[in-house]
Design a protein around this nucleic acid. Structure first.
Lengths: 233, 233
DNA sequence: TGACTTGTGGTCAGGTCAACCTGAAGCTCA
DNA sequence: TGAGCTTCAGGTTGACCTGACCACAAGTCA
């Protein structure tokens, strides 16, 4: 088509990883995410999303999981494609054109919290990202947060943050952290139970300093398309 | 990472194009889309989505519009990224790995209907696609139709099918075609007017065989992200 | 003129949702 | 031991939304 000299192009895969942790100041749960410090140009020493060039032998989602695990040690419970970024003026400082297929992932609270930070990786609350990031990663993160907030209101993905069994108050605190506002406990309870995405285990939590809550588990999902990965081992 | 011989990889851009036309049998409006007959291997002589290799000098959306216009002559009014398909087992018959960034587009009724079918292009109602298509394009189309149906219920994209001025009955027929069910005219009217996405022009349609309806136009939109292209020239 | 068609506007019953209230069931501490 | 505290569990109420239905408006057509 065009007679210009062939410009080098890189196809990369990266991931916005969401985790739930208490904020050091307030103690309230908030969204955190890991960032990786770049060790080479372009954008040397700037923070960036975990990612890397597409391994030609792997599926896109597998490649995302692979680079994610290698750099941050986390194993996501929910992985979903966010968007493909690849405009020509995307990062004018980079010498080659980069098309990035970006995923977002949710990590289980219990698995996540025991992970030690790897080298050149730092976790930050999403409201306190040390910008500006490399490439257009600030934009990508804002988009991912918005997508997560929208999706949590119509899809039972919040469960992905929790262990196998949880109380409705646990689930409510997840929603509150994502949406960044308080929810009425009894209205929340009615909504969740009416949508049939959790089922009663018959057991109750023990050792609480108050009335012990019932324990629930996620109900089996019925997804029409295999474009989302959940509950991977 | 892997020491295997470098496998050739192609980055392609293709588009699911939706248009509204009366069905030849019933006369009711339904969704149609153009398919292109492949003239080379793999999948020679099979129908496929319009698309082609990514032009390295163009933005992703521009590349999609470019190949779309070149093959089918249409100019979309609404263009939106659907998904990036690129699993390694995506089309076992193809010799090289193809990563496709797929867009979906809505074409205005009036512009669209005057277009003559280009060579090797045929329009089909979405319910009567002559499958199986090339690659995994059947899956892609099903996914795109579902996304369109979902999105039309919470976003004012149906306007993209209509000319600048339209009656609420026109708009209702668009919704009915997309959702494939009848809608109550007066309830539809109440909903649309309450959401503020249309504004009264003060004029009425003339030459109708009944009470002349008011004409409306789309109200200016407020989009938070520039990831969707609308109203392109 | 009267039948017909489609647009426009309203009513009404049922469901949903947020705000609020009350009791249940554990713990802690005097 | 029992009062007080905290959180869970479940109910009530009123505002709002939605779908089904009704009635009239304003044109054309025979």
């Amino acid at each position: 088509m065009s007679a210009e000299p062939e410009q080098r192009m890189v196809l990369a895969v990266s991931t916005v990883i969401f985790s739930l942790r208490p904020h050091p100041d307030t103690g309230e749960f908030t969204l955190w995410m890991p960032l990786v410090r770049r060790i080479r140009e372009p954008f040397k020493d700037r923070w960036a999303l975990p990612g890397g060039p597409l391994d030609n032998g792997l599926d896109l989602a597998e490649a995302a999981k692979s680079t994610m695990h290698r750099t941050t040690q986390v194993q996501p419970r929910h992985l979903e494609q966010l968007y493909a970024f690849g405009d020509v003026d995307r990062s004018p400082e980079a010498p080659e054109r980069v098309v990035s297929i970006v995923y977002w992932a949710l990590v289980r609270q219990d698995e996540d919290l025991q992970v030690v930070d790897a080298e050149n990786v730092e976790w930050h609350p999403v409201e306190e990202i040390p910008g500006p990031l490399a490439f257009d990663h600030d934009l990508i993160i804002r988009y991912a947060v918005d997508r997560l907030r929208a999706k949590v209101t119509y899809s039972p993905i919040a469960h992905a943050f929790l262990p196998d069994e949880f109380s409705l108050a646990d689930l409510r605190r997840v929603y509150e952290a994502i949406l960044d506002r308080a929810l009425d406990p009894s209205n929340f309870r009615r909504q969740i139970l009416s949508q049939g995405t959790v089922e009663d285990t018959g057991r109750r939590m023990t050792g609480t300093a108050h009335r012990p809550p019932k324990l629930y588990r996620s109900a089996p999902k019925s997804s029409r398309y295999a474009l989302t990965i959940e509950e991977n081992p």
